[in-house]
């Protein structure tokens, strides 16, 4: 009984998002013949892993009541480190990837540690790191795109049952993250700190390690996204990930994550990413111009949040 109602709540939570996604797919499938094809879906599945990983990290950050504006630049930096390590320093691929992941974790740790130590809003610190990481990416690559050839082709090229390795990895990470957020002590602390940090502190729990861990985790996921994108394009561009932070926030927000903290779900963010991806690909398939795409995407973000508010009001009305 307890479990059934929980399942029920879980289903209704994602029903709206799934319906919106299905509607989009339906509309685009009816409008053009180029959309509902295996090739198109494979393309989408290959495009989204990077955004999915970054948006997953962003969801944790937002639930914590913080924000990370640096993810796009950090992705660029991690990709650059990977590219330079392989092409210039001639490191083995595995070691180069470790270095890229390390760079991401370091950036996340820097974000967390600086905002904790000097009690700065993470908006400010990550805005600074947004600039610094992009600068560092250009510095290590001397602003040259690094062409890797086939050095790490296996990352993006491996297919299991028709699905690419990055896509499967991203799915696994979404599942693990959702589990961590909803079922573990760590996840509960993230939600609690995002809800009321002072209450958590006065309950004898130090919120600082939680904060640091969330930013480091986000750094790691961003770095992983950087490795995946670098492998997919077979090159490391210091300008990679430009504006990615806003896409990640948009995906989380479409999924119903609150910017005020305390509320959010990784699975819902997954739907958000899918909605953005389908929208982009569908609009491209019907031949919409770039300006139209941006207008529509923007409207969808705002519309999604309005709908989400109504949904919450309804739920609250029912529970009282």
């Amino acid at each position: 009984m307890q479990n059934r109602s929980r399942w029920h709540a879980g289903l209704t939570e994602y029903l709206g998002l799934a319906a919106a996604l299905a509607l989009l797919v339906l509309v685009f499938s009816l409008s053009t013949r180029n959309f509902f094809t295996t090739t198109n879906f494979t393309t989408i599945a290959n495009q989204i892993p990077a955004l999915l990983l970054v948006a997953t990290g962003m969801t944790f950050v937002l639930v914590l009541g913080q924000i990370d504006l640096s993810v796009g630049s950090v992705l660029g930096l991690c990709g650059s480190v990977l590219g330079v390590a392989i092409t210039q320093w001639k490191w083995p691929a595995g070691l180069a990837m470790l270095a890229a992941l390390g760079a991401g974790v370091f950036c996340g740790a820097f974000n967390g540690a600086v905002s904790i130590r000097w009690r700065l809003p993470t908006f400010i610190v990550t805005l600074g790191v947004l600039e610094m990481a992009r600068g560092a990416a250009h510095a290590v690559t001397r602003s040259q795109t690094q062409y890797l050839g086939s050095a790490i082709d296996w990352v993006a090229g491996t297919n299991v049952l028709g699905l690419s390795l990055p896509f499967l990895v991203a799915l696994a990470i979404v599942a693990a993250s959702q589990f961590a957020l909803t079922r573990t002590v760590f996840g509960r602390y993230v939600v609690a700190v995002g809800t009321n940090e002072e209450a958590v502190r006065l309950s004898g729990i130090d919120p600082r390690p939680v904060k640091l861990a969330v930013f480091m985790l986000t750094g790691l996921l961003v770095a992983l996204a950087g490795v995946i994108d670098t492998a997919r394009f077979q090159s490391a561009n210091p300008n990679a990930g430009l504006g990615l932070e806003l896409q990640a926030i948009a995906a989380a927000v479409i999924g119903g994550t609150s910017l005020m903290g305390g509320r959010g779900s990784v699975v819902a963010t997954f739907f958000g990413v899918l909605i953005i991806a389908v929208l982009n690909s569908g609009l491209a398939a019907i031949g919409a111009r770039d300006e139209t795409k941006r207008l529509v995407t923007g409207a969808v973000i705002i519309g999604a949040v309005i709908l989400d508010q109504y949904r919450h009001r309804l739920e609250r009305g029912r529970s009282t």
């Binding site: 509960r188 939600v191 809800t195 009321n196 002072e198 209450a199 509320r263």
Partner: peptide, 13 residues
């Protein structure tokens, strides 16, 4: 409300 409870969360949490 400001320093004790996690208002939107369940009594359980």
């Amino acid at each position: 409300k400001a320093q004790g409870l996690l208002l939107p969360l369940a009594v359980r949490a």
